[in-house]
Protein backbone atom coordinates (compact mmCIF):
# COMPACT_ATOMS: atom_id res chain seq x y z
CA UNK A 1 0.00 0.00 0.00
CA UNK A 2 2.62 2.49 1.08
CA UNK A 3 4.54 1.93 -2.09
CA UNK A 4 1.45 2.37 -4.24
CA UNK A 5 0.58 5.61 -2.49
CA UNK A 6 3.79 7.19 -3.72
CA UNK A 7 3.05 6.49 -7.36
CA UNK A 8 1.11 9.45 -8.66
CA UNK A 9 -0.98 8.45 -11.62
CA UNK A 10 -2.04 11.57 -13.53
CA UNK A 11 -4.90 9.73 -15.21
CA UNK A 12 -6.53 8.98 -11.86
CA UNK A 13 -8.88 11.23 -9.92
CA UNK A 14 -7.59 11.81 -6.40
CA UNK A 15 -9.96 14.64 -5.55
CA UNK A 16 -12.86 12.33 -4.72
CA UNK A 17 -10.78 10.60 -2.07
CA UNK A 18 -9.51 13.87 -0.63
CA UNK A 19 -13.03 15.29 -0.50
CA UNK A 20 -14.37 12.13 1.12
CA UNK A 21 -11.62 12.27 3.71
CA UNK A 22 -12.40 15.93 4.38
CA UNK A 23 -16.09 15.05 4.89
CA UNK A 24 -15.15 12.23 7.28
CA UNK A 25 -13.09 14.61 9.38
CA UNK A 26 -15.91 17.16 9.49
CA UNK A 27 -18.39 14.47 10.47
CA UNK A 28 -16.12 13.15 13.23
CA UNK A 29 -15.79 16.66 14.68
CA UNK A 30 -19.57 17.19 14.53
CA UNK A 31 -20.22 13.82 16.23
CA UNK A 32 -17.67 14.28 18.98
CA UNK A 33 -17.99 17.96 19.81
CA UNK A 34 -21.29 19.65 20.69
CA UNK A 35 -21.76 23.14 19.20
CA UNK A 36 -21.52 24.44 22.78
CA UNK A 37 -20.63 22.08 25.63
CA UNK A 38 -22.02 21.88 29.16
CA UNK A 39 -20.15 23.74 31.90
CA UNK A 40 -16.71 22.20 32.36
CA UNK A 41 -14.16 22.51 35.13
CA UNK A 42 -10.54 23.42 34.42
CA UNK A 43 -9.51 20.02 35.75
CA UNK A 44 -11.42 18.49 32.86
CA UNK A 45 -9.53 20.78 30.48
CA UNK A 46 -6.28 19.61 32.08
CA UNK A 47 -6.94 16.01 31.07
CA UNK A 48 -6.20 17.09 27.49
CA UNK A 49 -2.71 18.14 28.50
CA UNK A 50 -1.44 15.30 30.72
CA UNK A 51 2.17 15.61 29.60
CA UNK A 52 2.26 19.30 28.97
CA UNK A 53 3.70 21.18 31.95
CA UNK A 54 3.41 24.62 30.38
CA UNK A 55 -0.25 24.24 29.49
CA UNK A 56 -1.01 22.77 32.92
CA UNK A 57 0.53 25.85 34.57
CA UNK A 58 -1.52 28.10 32.33
CA UNK A 59 -4.71 26.22 33.19
CA UNK A 60 -3.89 26.75 36.89
CA UNK A 61 -3.55 30.44 36.12
CA UNK A 62 -7.05 30.42 34.58
CA UNK A 63 -8.38 28.41 37.50
CA UNK A 64 -7.33 31.18 39.88
CA UNK A 65 -9.25 33.80 37.92
CA UNK A 66 -12.23 32.03 36.37
CA UNK A 67 -14.92 29.71 37.74
CA UNK A 68 -15.39 27.38 34.80
CA UNK A 69 -15.70 27.21 31.02
CA UNK A 70 -17.64 25.85 28.06
CA UNK A 71 -16.08 24.41 24.95
CA UNK A 72 -17.36 25.13 21.45
CA UNK A 73 -17.12 22.98 18.34
CA UNK A 74 -13.88 23.38 16.37
CA UNK A 75 -15.55 24.05 13.03
CA UNK A 76 -14.03 27.41 12.17
CA UNK A 77 -17.09 29.23 13.52
CA UNK A 78 -16.03 28.91 17.17
CA UNK A 79 -15.30 32.60 17.78
CA UNK A 80 -18.74 33.69 16.57
CA UNK A 81 -20.50 30.76 18.22
CA UNK A 82 -18.73 31.34 21.55
CA UNK A 83 -19.31 35.09 21.51
CA UNK A 84 -23.03 34.75 20.72
CA UNK A 85 -23.62 32.19 23.43
CA UNK A 86 -21.62 34.00 26.11
CA UNK A 87 -23.19 37.39 25.46
CA UNK A 88 -26.80 36.22 25.17
CA UNK A 89 -26.50 34.01 28.23
CA UNK A 90 -25.29 37.04 30.10
CA UNK A 91 -28.24 39.15 28.89
CA UNK A 92 -30.51 36.37 30.04
CA UNK A 93 -29.16 36.71 33.57
CA UNK A 94 -28.80 40.48 33.60
CA UNK A 95 -30.72 42.50 31.03
CA UNK A 96 -29.43 46.02 31.71
CA UNK A 97 -27.61 46.09 28.35
CA UNK A 98 -30.56 44.56 26.51
CA UNK A 99 -32.38 47.65 25.13
CA UNK A 100 -29.15 49.10 23.73
CA UNK A 101 -28.19 45.80 22.08
CA UNK A 102 -31.66 45.15 20.68
CA UNK A 103 -31.73 48.55 19.01
CA UNK A 104 -28.39 47.92 17.31
CA UNK A 105 -29.50 44.43 16.28
CA UNK A 106 -32.81 45.67 14.83
CA UNK A 107 -31.21 48.49 12.87
CA UNK A 108 -28.37 46.37 11.53
CA UNK A 109 -30.39 44.89 8.66
CA UNK A 110 -31.12 48.26 7.06
CA UNK A 111 -27.48 49.21 7.46
CA UNK A 112 -26.36 46.05 5.67
CA UNK A 113 -28.87 46.63 2.87
CA UNK A 114 -27.61 50.21 2.56
CA UNK A 115 -24.08 48.80 2.18
CA UNK A 116 -25.26 46.77 -0.81
CA UNK A 117 -26.09 43.37 0.71
CA UNK A 118 -29.11 41.87 -1.09
CA UNK A 119 -32.26 42.35 0.98
CA UNK A 120 -33.83 38.94 0.47
CA UNK A 121 -30.83 36.92 1.63
CA UNK A 122 -30.08 39.24 4.56
CA UNK A 123 -33.70 39.13 5.69
CA UNK A 124 -33.73 35.40 6.41
CA UNK A 125 -30.68 35.56 8.63
CA UNK A 126 -31.80 38.71 10.37
CA UNK A 127 -35.18 37.18 11.14
CA UNK A 128 -33.65 34.19 12.90
CA UNK A 129 -31.12 36.43 14.65
CA UNK A 130 -33.94 38.56 16.08
CA UNK A 131 -36.00 35.50 17.02
CA UNK A 132 -33.17 34.25 19.21
CA UNK A 133 -32.71 37.69 20.76
CA UNK A 134 -36.44 37.98 21.45
CA UNK A 135 -36.46 34.61 23.20
CA UNK A 136 -33.80 36.02 25.50
CA UNK A 137 -35.87 39.18 25.98
CA UNK A 138 -38.84 37.10 27.06
CA UNK A 139 -36.66 35.48 29.70
CA UNK A 140 -36.67 31.91 28.53
CA UNK A 141 -34.96 29.53 30.97
CA UNK A 142 -31.24 28.86 30.67
CA UNK A 143 -32.08 25.35 29.54
CA UNK A 144 -34.45 26.61 26.82
CA UNK A 145 -31.78 29.03 25.66
CA UNK A 146 -29.19 26.25 25.51
CA UNK A 147 -31.53 24.06 23.45
CA UNK A 148 -32.29 26.91 21.06
CA UNK A 149 -28.69 27.99 20.60
CA UNK A 150 -27.38 24.47 20.07
CA UNK A 151 -29.95 23.68 17.38
CA UNK A 152 -27.63 23.47 14.38
CA UNK A 153 -29.98 25.25 11.97
CA UNK A 154 -30.71 28.17 14.28
CA UNK A 155 -27.15 28.39 15.55
CA UNK A 156 -25.71 28.51 12.03
CA UNK A 157 -28.16 31.23 11.00
CA UNK A 158 -27.04 33.20 14.04
CA UNK A 159 -23.36 32.73 13.14
CA UNK A 160 -23.97 33.79 9.52
CA UNK A 161 -25.58 36.98 10.70
CA UNK A 162 -22.71 37.82 13.07
CA UNK A 163 -20.36 37.25 10.13
CA UNK A 164 -22.41 39.67 8.03
CA UNK A 165 -22.31 42.28 10.80
CA UNK A 166 -18.51 42.00 10.86
CA UNK A 167 -18.33 42.23 7.07
CA UNK A 168 -20.60 45.26 7.10
CA UNK A 169 -18.53 47.02 9.74
CA UNK A 170 -15.22 46.30 7.99
CA UNK A 171 -16.60 47.67 4.73
CA UNK A 172 -18.09 50.72 6.42
CA UNK A 173 -14.74 51.51 8.06
CA UNK A 174 -12.75 50.46 5.02
CA UNK A 175 -10.27 53.34 5.25
CA UNK A 176 -9.17 52.17 8.68
CA UNK A 177 -9.24 48.40 8.21
CA UNK A 178 -7.45 48.37 4.85
CA UNK A 179 -4.18 48.68 6.83
CA UNK A 180 -4.81 45.31 8.48
CA UNK A 181 -5.78 43.32 5.40
CA UNK A 182 -3.04 41.03 4.15
CA UNK A 183 -2.26 39.77 0.68
CA UNK A 184 -2.89 42.95 -1.33
CA UNK A 185 -6.65 42.41 -1.16
CA UNK A 186 -9.33 45.06 -0.88
CA UNK A 187 -11.47 45.09 2.29
CA UNK A 188 -14.38 43.79 0.25
CA UNK A 189 -12.33 40.91 -1.14
CA UNK A 190 -11.14 40.08 2.37
CA UNK A 191 -14.76 40.04 3.60
CA UNK A 192 -15.86 37.83 0.71
CA UNK A 193 -13.05 35.37 1.34
CA UNK A 194 -12.35 35.42 5.10
CA UNK A 195 -15.45 36.75 6.86
CA UNK A 196 -18.68 35.85 5.07
CA UNK A 197 -18.02 32.17 4.24
CA UNK A 198 -18.80 29.75 7.07
CA UNK A 199 -15.92 27.88 8.73
CA UNK A 200 -13.33 30.59 8.04
CA UNK A 201 -11.39 31.22 11.23
CA UNK A 202 -11.42 34.54 13.04
CA UNK A 203 -8.51 36.78 13.78
CA UNK A 204 -7.92 40.09 15.61
CA UNK A 205 -9.53 42.00 12.77
CA UNK A 206 -12.81 40.05 13.08
CA UNK A 207 -12.90 40.55 16.86
CA UNK A 208 -12.10 44.25 16.59
CA UNK A 209 -14.91 44.75 14.07
CA UNK A 210 -17.51 42.75 15.98
CA UNK A 211 -16.69 44.55 19.22
CA UNK A 212 -17.03 47.92 17.55
CA UNK A 213 -20.18 47.06 15.59
CA UNK A 214 -22.12 45.73 18.59
CA UNK A 215 -20.52 47.78 21.35
CA UNK A 216 -19.75 44.65 23.37
CA UNK A 217 -16.26 44.42 24.87
CA UNK A 218 -14.33 41.15 24.80
CA UNK A 219 -11.37 39.87 26.79
CA UNK A 220 -9.40 37.05 25.20
CA UNK A 221 -7.08 34.91 27.34
CA UNK A 222 -4.35 33.56 25.07
CA UNK A 223 -3.08 30.13 26.04
CA UNK A 224 -0.16 29.51 23.73
CA UNK A 225 3.19 27.75 23.61
CA UNK A 226 5.05 30.69 25.14
CA UNK A 227 6.96 29.58 28.24
CA UNK A 228 5.47 32.06 30.73
CA UNK A 229 3.26 30.34 33.34
CA UNK A 230 0.37 32.73 32.74
CA UNK A 231 -2.04 33.35 29.88
CA UNK A 232 -1.72 36.66 28.03
CA UNK A 233 -4.79 38.84 28.04
CA UNK A 234 -6.00 41.12 25.33
CA UNK A 235 -8.99 43.41 25.68
CA UNK A 236 -11.02 44.51 22.67
CA UNK A 237 -11.04 47.48 22.51
CA UNK A 238 -7.83 48.23 24.42
CA UNK A 239 -8.38 49.40 27.97
CA UNK A 240 -12.12 48.64 27.97
CA UNK A 241 -14.03 46.79 30.68
CA UNK A 242 -14.84 43.40 29.20
CA UNK A 243 -18.24 41.76 29.32
CA UNK A 244 -17.49 38.61 27.31
CA UNK A 245 -14.51 36.41 28.23
CA UNK A 246 -13.05 33.94 25.76
CA UNK A 247 -10.20 31.46 25.94
CA UNK A 248 -7.97 31.20 22.87
CA UNK A 249 -5.91 28.10 22.25
CA UNK A 250 -4.14 27.93 18.87
CA UNK A 251 -6.91 28.19 16.24
CA UNK A 252 -9.75 27.84 18.71
CA UNK A 253 -12.02 29.90 20.99
CA UNK A 254 -13.99 28.69 24.06
CA UNK A 255 -16.08 30.50 26.69
CA UNK A 256 -14.80 31.52 30.13
CA UNK A 257 -16.86 32.39 33.22
CA UNK A 258 -15.28 34.89 35.64
Amino acid sequence: MAEGALNYDPSKNYDDQTCAQQRDIEKAIADEQPLVSDILSFDELKTEYQDDEIFKLKIDDLKGRYKHMRKTRGDGNCFFRAFGFAYLEQLLNNNTDFPRFKEIASKSKDELVALGFPQFTIEDFHETFMEVIEKVEKKCTNEEFYQLYTDQGISDYFVVYLRLIVSGHLQKEEDFFIHFVEGGRTVKEFCNQEVEPMHKESDHIHITALTAALGVNIRVEYMDRGDTPKCNQHDFPDGSRPSVYLLYRPSHYDILYP
Binding site: T121, D156, P197
Partner: peptide, 16 residues
Protein backbone atom coordinates in the same frame (compact mmCIF):
# COMPACT_ATOMS: atom_id res chain seq x y z
CA UNK B 1 -14.81 30.02 -9.76
CA UNK B 2 -13.96 30.38 -6.07
CA UNK B 3 -17.43 31.42 -4.85
CA UNK B 4 -18.73 28.02 -5.99
CA UNK B 5 -16.61 26.22 -3.38
CA UNK B 6 -14.07 27.83 -1.01
CA UNK B 7 -15.52 31.32 -0.94
CA UNK B 8 -19.20 30.35 -0.93
CA UNK B 9 -21.21 32.16 1.74
CA UNK B 10 -24.84 31.53 2.73
CA UNK B 11 -25.45 35.21 1.99
CA UNK B 12 -24.76 34.60 -1.70
CA UNK B 13 -27.57 33.54 -4.02
CA UNK B 14 -28.42 32.24 -7.49
CA UNK B 15 -28.48 35.84 -8.60
CA UNK B 16 -25.02 36.63 -7.24
Amino acid sequence: LSILTDDWSPALSVQS
